[in-house]
Design a protein around this nucleic acid. Structure first.
Length: 219
DNA sequence: CAATAGATCATCT
DNA sequence: GATGATCTATTGC
């Protein structure tokens, strides 16, 4: 894929993010992440809700770090974790008033489309192109996303999510979120079933089981 | 494959 | 002073 192929793509409007967080997380799958000439297709996300979600950074209420989660939707939330990595989120929630509601979608993995050379330089330890952005820490490293991107507009700013009309649909599966202790059974992780760029084959299978169980419960 | 340790620091108690 | 929305290398079946 080349930059020209993005001609028909449109930046997701602020209204896209002003909806329930879990819904935005699902709908971000298949969308394009664009930053600094690099492009990737999102294949894995997680929803982190407001005060009611103990696993969310918003659970304790507003602090210096999570402030943007309580602000208007359509803004990036980037935080530093484990002394080494950054994680990229899109602030998304249905609340209109700051402080009344909070939420964000963690971008966990994406399929690299443009700028693979730059990504390889930044992710020298990656064994294959599929692993350049197959994890939240890997993705921000490949894209060069850091503190400077926190709080930036996803509509006007340098970092944007695009919809590419006509792109093939992904097979969406659901599972519990990864790497958390609290609310460990909440089904708020969404990913492209069987996609090679999802965090790991083990987690991919786990999600398959979760999807099968969810489907079974529906009948 | 699965389990584990180590790296490394901002944030909060 | 402990913890964490992670990743990598290494060890053990």
């Amino acid at each position: 894929m080349t930059q020209e192929d993005l001609a028909g793509a449109e930046v997701l409007p602020a209204s896209f993010y002003a909806r329930p967080t879990a819904l935005v997380a699902q709908d971000l799958l298949g969308k394009l992440l664009v930053f600094d000439g690099l492009v990737a297709r999102i294949v894995e996300t997680e929803a982190y809700l407001g005060r009611e979600d103990a696993a969310s950074h918003a659970a304790p209420g507003p602090t210096a770090r999570n402030a943007v989660m309580f602000g208007p939707p359509g803004v990036s939330y980037v935080y530093f974790i484990y002394g080494m990595y950054f994680c990229l989120n899109a602030v998304a929630h249905a609340g209109e008033h700051a402080g009344a509601e909070a939420g964000a979608v963690l971008i966990r993995a994406a399929e690299p489309l443009c700028g693979l050379g730059t990504m390889r330089e930044r992710r020298a330890s990656a064994r294959c192109w599929q692993d350049l952005a197959s994890g939240p820490g890997k993705l921000t490293r490949a894209f060069g996303i850091g503190r400077a991107e926190n709080g930036a507009s996803l509509v006007d700013g340098p970092l944007r999510f695009l919809d590419l009309p006509g792109a093939e649909a992904l097979d969406v599966a659901v599972s519990p979120r990864i790497g958390i202790r609290k609310c460990a059974d909440w089904p708020l992780r969404f990913f492209a079933l069987g996609h090679p760029c999802v965090t790991s084959s083990r987690l991919n299978r786990a999600g398959t089981l979760a999807l099968a169980r969810a489907a079974a419960m529906r009948t």
